[in-house]
Amino acid sequence: MPILEITDLTKRYGDTLAVDGVSFSIDEGETYGLLGPNGAGKTTTISMIVGVLDRDGGEVRLDGRLHSVTNAETKALIGYVPQDLALYQDLTARENLRFFGRLYGLAGAEGTRKVGEVLEAVGLSDRANEQVAKFSGGMMRRLNIAIGLLNKPRLLILDEPTAGVDPQSRNAILNTVQQLAGEGVAVLYTTHYMEEAERLCDRVGIVDLGRMKAEGTRRELVSLVGENDRVLLKGDGDMKQAAAVLSGMPDIKQVTVDGADAELIVTDARGTLPGVFETLTRAGVHVRSVEVREPDLEAVFLHLTGKALRD
C-alpha cells in the first residue's frame, strides 16, 4: 500500500503554473526521487505534500488518509527537511532540536533521548552545544536533516538536502538517507544532481515546468532513450577520415567529430570497441583516451526536455 499518493496536484502563482497536474505515489519503504532543473516546481510540490502550502487543486493522501494544511494527524507521519536552512541561528544545535521536538510532542526524558539519537545519526554529537551561526555550511545542512528525523517519520521528505555542501558532507548525508531507507522509511528526495537520484532512488520522476515528464525505475527511464551507449574518443591523426570509415561499421549508428574529439553512438560498446581501435589504427589515428557512457538520467532528461539538467 502506498504511504503517499498524490493526484493531479496543482498550484498557480499569478500567471505561473508552478505545479501542473502532478500525480505519483510512493510505497512503504521506497525511495522516490523528483529530478528537475531550477524552477521546475519541486519545492512547490513538496510544500503542498508537507502541508505548509494550500493547493489549488488535486489531492494528497498519506497512509490512505486525506491530508491537508490543517490535518495534524497526517502531518505527524512526515519528517520534513526544507530546502532552506530553517534553523534558529542564534540557538545551539541542541536547543533547535529540543524546540522542534516539542512541536512534535517530544518532551522530557524522551525528548532528550531522541535529540541525542538524531545528533548521533548526523554526526553532530560533539558540536551539539555550539551556536548554529558558528557552524559550517555542511554542518548546518546536517542539523537541518536531523530536525526532520526527530519524529521518527514514516515518510521522510528532503528538498535538495545537499545543496551547497562539500563532497564529504554530501557523502555523509547520502549515507544517512540510505541507512534510513534501509530501515524501512519511505523517502521523497528532490535534487538536480542526477548522480544522487541514481545512487539513492528506487524510482525517479522527471519534472520540468511544473509537469511530470516521465516516471519509473532508472532502467525504465533509460529505455526511453533506447539502449545505445555513447563512446567519447580523443585521438591524434586525421579524425575526419577515420570518422568516414567508422560510420560504415555495422554497430555504429552515428559519428560526430569535433577537432580531436569524436563521439560515437553505438548499440553495444563492449562488442564494438575492439573493431573501432583496429579501424582507427589502420587509418593512422593514435587513440589517446576512450570513455564509454552508458545511458544515464542526464541523457533521459536531455531526451525528454531538450535541455541539460543543470547549466
Binding site: A72, K75, D84, A86, L87, F100, G105
Partner: peptide, 18 residues
C-alpha cells in the same frame, strides 16, 4: 527572520495548528 529563514514554515509542517 523566522519567516524568511523558513523556520515558521517548518513549525507549520509539524502537527501544530496555525
Amino acid at each position: 527572520q523566522a519567516r524568511t529563514s523558513g523556520v515558521l514554515r517548518r513549525m507549520y509542517a509539524s502537527p501544530t495548528p496555525a
